[in-house]
Design a protein around this nucleic acid. Sequence first.
RNA 1: GCCGAAGUGGCGGAACGGAAUACGCGGCGGUCUCAAAAACCGUUGGGGGAGACCCCAUGUGGGUUCAAAUCCCACCUUCGGCACCA
Length: 817
Amino acid sequence: MDKYNFRAVEKRAQAMWARTDGESKDAKAPVGKFYCLEMFPYTSGDLHMGHVRNYSIGDVLARFYRMNGYEVLHPMGWDAFGLPAENAASKSGTHPAQWTQANVAKMKEQLKALGTSYDWDREVNTTSPDYYRWTQWIFLLMYRRGLAYRKRAAVNWCEECQTVLANEQVVSGLCWRCDTEVKSRELEQWFLRITDYADRLLDDLVLLEQWPERVRSMQVNWIGRSEGAELHFPLLQGDEEQIISVFTTRHDTVYGATYVVLAPEHPLVDVILQNHPDDAVRDFVDQSRTIDTQERVAEDFEKEGVFTGAYARNQFTGEPIPIWVGNYVVYDYGTGAVMGVPAHDERDFVFANKYSLPIREVIQEPQRQEKELARAYTGPGSMIHSGPFNGINSDEGLERIADYAEEKGWGVRKTNYRLRDWLISRQRYWGAPIPMIYCDACGLVPVPEEDLPVVLPVDIAYKPGPNPLMESEEFVRTRCPQCGQPARRETDTMDTFIDSSWYYLRYCSANYDKAPFLSQDANHWLPVDQYTGGIEHAILHLLYSRFITKVLHDAGLIEVVEPFKRLLTQGMVIKGGAKMSKSKGNVVSPDAIMRKYGADTARLFILFASPPEKDLEWSDQGVEGASRFLQRVWRMFNQYLTEGRGSKRPVSAQDRALQQELHRAIRRVTHDIKDRIHLNTAISAMMELVNATYKYLEEESPCDALVREVFSTLALMLAPFAPHLAEELWASLGGGDSVYHQTWPVYDEALAQAEEVTVVVQVNGRVRERLVVSLDNDEADIETLAFASENVQRFIADKTVRKIIHVPNKLVNIVVG
RNA sequence: GCCGAAGUGGCGGAACGGAAUACGCGGCGGUCUCAAAAACCGUUGGGGGAGACCCCAUGUGGGUUCAAAUCCCACCUUCGGCACCA
C-alpha cells in the first residue's frame, strides 16, 4: 500500500496556486466582504510556533469565507522597524536594513511553505519609504490637529535600549522588550494627545461586543477613568491667594477632612517652606523626592509624612486644618494633593493614627455595634456632622456636595484618568523620522507634505551607540521651509507602534501613491471583520490602533470609529508548561516540523490541540496523531478509488446512517468555524465522519454515489485546514478546478436528522432505561414503553407517580415519591 | 485590595439545563507477520457484583430545578490585568 507523500502533494498544490494566483480573489457576485486580518509579524528572522498558530487560524477563516462566496481581503506585511534590527547590526555588522530584508525574505518563504493564502499584491513593509512616508503624513495630520506636541516631562528611560518608552511599554517597572529596569528622566519629547480620546476609547468599548471580555477589561483598567471632584483648600498663613486643590472621589466625606497632604514634588511645598522654614520638613522633602517610583509602590513601603507648620481652610466646615507632606502621595496623578478623611479611607486612617491627627466620622455605618471606630468605614451611609447635609444618604450626598461646591466656588466636578499621553519619540536610528524641522527664526516647523518622505538615510555606516542620525550632517542640515534659512531636522524617530497602528488601512490601498489610503477603499473594507493575534497586544497595539482610527475618522478620512469588529486573541504555544523560549531550550522549530510531517500536519495539529483562545501545550505525540489522521483520509480515498468496489443499489439503512453522519458533520464544521471559531471541534467532527465512513466501507457493497458524496464533501471541508491534501483529494475525485473555486457544502437539516432516536427514561432524574424509537413517536406510546421496562418498574415499585416530564425525542423523567 | 478568565479521565480536551468523559494522545487485548514496525479491529473514569445491574465522580460547600459540569450564592486554587490612583 502506498503512503501519502506530503512532499509531492504540497509541491503540486503550491505550484497550482502559483499558477492560478489571483483567480480566487475575484469572487463573482460576492455575498459580502470579509476583511480577515492577522497581526503582522515583527521581522525577527524566523517564524515561531506562535506565528504558525496565528496564521493557521487566520488562513482557515480566509479560505472558509472565500468558499462561502465572500469577497475576502487577506493581506500580510512586515512590522520591520525596531530595535532588534539595530542590536543584530551591532552584533554582526550587518546594516539594519539588510538584516530586515533578509528576514522578510525568509519569513515570507516560511509563510508560503505553510500554505497560507495571502494576497501578496498588497504586501506592506513599514520600513519602506512608500509606507513610512504616510506614517509621517499621519503624524503631520495629528500635529495640525493639535494632537502632536512637545513637552518637557519626567519620562521612562531604558538604559539598555538607549531610548525613552511610552507608559504602555513599561511592564511592572521593566522595559517591555529587554526587561531592564526603567529609570525616570526629565526630557523634552514628542507626545500624542491620546488622553483627549480617553472618554471615547473607554465608552466605545461597548461597541466591541465581539471582543473578548478580558481585553476590554484590560483597556478599561488601563484608561482608568475615575469620576470625582476637585476641591479647593485655601492656604491660611502666608500668601492667602494660594489654593490647594485636591482630587477626590469621595467628596461626600469632605466634612471629615481633618488635614491635607501634598506630594513631596508639589510646587506649594516650596512656597510653604519659604514662609515656614523648617529643616526637618526640608530634609524629608528632599529625601522623598529622590526615592524611586519603583520603590514607592512597593508593598512594604512605609507611609510617612511631616507637618509643614502651615494650615489650610476646609471651606465646608470653616475650620483650619494642618498641611502635611506625605511620601505616599503621587504627584503625577490628580492634583498631587489629597484631603485626609481618616474615618472613611483606610490609608488615611492608618496615617492619622500614626501621627495622632483628628478622626471625624461623617458617614454613619449602618448597624455598627462598637462605639469606637476600629477601622475606616468606606461604604455608603447616612451623613452626619456634615452641616446642611446631615441625614442625607452619602450616595446622594456626592451629587449634592458637588452642586454645593460648584455653587460656592469651592470646587468643581472632575474626571481623572490613569492614561497618559503617548510618548512617541525614540532616540533610535531604525524608525520613521519625525518630520519636523527646528529653525532659529521660525521655531518648530513641520515638513511640508510635498517634501515627504523624510528619508531615513540607509547609506550611512551603522555602528552601535547613540542614534547615528544625530551625527549625520547630511540628514540634520536642511533649510527652513518657511524662511529658507539653514535649519536642523528632528533626529528622533517614531515609536514603531505608530507604524502598526494604521497598517490595516494601508492594505486597503496598498499601491496607491497619492495618499496613505483611499477613503473609498477604506470604507469598503473596514472594519476588519476578524482580527487574530496574541493577547500581549491587548493594551499596546489595540489601544493605539483604536486611537488612530478615531483621529482619522474625525479628520473625515474614514467612516468607522472602531477598526476591529471581531477580535480573537489566541493563546500561547507552550511546552512543558512554559512558553517556548531559547533560554528554556524548549523551542520547537516550525521548519523542522514541516520538514518531517508537512505543512498540513503542522496546521492540523496546532488547530486541533486546543481551542484557539486557550494556551496550547505542544505534544510530539499529538503531531503524530494529526499526521495519522491525514494519512487515514488519504488512504481511504486511495483505496476506495483504486479498488472501485462501489455499486448502484437501493438505499439501505446503513446508507441512511452515513448520510446522516455526513450532514451532521457539515452542520457542525460550518457552525464551529463561522459562529464559534472552535476549530478543534470542527476537526473532531471531520474525524468522526472519517471513522463512520471507514466502518461503512467495511460492508459488503457500499453505495458508490454516497461514498463519492462523502468524499467530495470531506475534501471541501478539509480544504481550509489541510489545503494541500484537500487539493490532492479533490483532484483524485476528478475535480479539475482548484478546490477553492468550489462552494462550501450545505447541509440538509432533514437529512441530518436521525430516523431513530434514543429516548432516555429516568426515574427521579436518574437514567434507568434507554428506548430506541422512531423519530416523533407518539408520546403516549413512549410512556407506555417506559413503564413497561422492568428496570423502571423496579425503581417505581410501590411509590406514587407524581409527575412525568417528557422532552420529545430526548427523555422521559418519571418523578415518584 | 479591585477587575477578568479558568478549574472535567493518566494527558490535550468535548458537552455549556436533558445520556458527563465526544475527538485525539497514551495504555491494554487482538488481526496481519518468523518477529517487529506500520495499519486495521476491539477495549479503556473509579468502586461493587458471577451477571442483569448498582453506587460514586466535573476544585469545595450550599441553593434553584423533575433534571446542574452548565444557573445562583459563598469559599479555595491557578493564571492575567490594574493598584499607596485619593
